[in-house]
Amino acid sequence: MKMMPCPLNGLRNISEFVYGGEVTDMPDHTTCSDREWAEYVFYTDNQIQVVTEWWLHAPSSYWFIAERHTGSDEILRTYDPSERFTERVDFEQTEDNTTTGGGSGS
């Protein structure tokens, strides 16, 4: 079975991990256009190359980052997200989006 080195748990079977998508920069959802948001949500490079991705080690609920080649499936490096994200990201609640998501009865 293919193995993946988890930064927390060591080398484990690939079946213990869940793919979480590419690491990309999120546009500011309060100011970006629909097109920019669609670009972020749906569009991908999807090339044969080394990609930087989120992965989850499911038994420990631990998210980390992996660099992997999408042609050879070789995993080049895995590391803790703290190497890349040093600050907590908080989403500000704006006036106009506090009312969205309510049902017809609200």
């Binding site: 669609a38 569009y43 991908t44 490079d45 999807n46 090339q47 999408t70």
Partner: peptide, 16 residues
Amino acid sequence: SSLLAAKAGFRMPIIT
């Protein structure tokens, strides 16, 4: 599709 589209200069909403 994404590989060829890149040659034509655009991205697609596709994951392979």
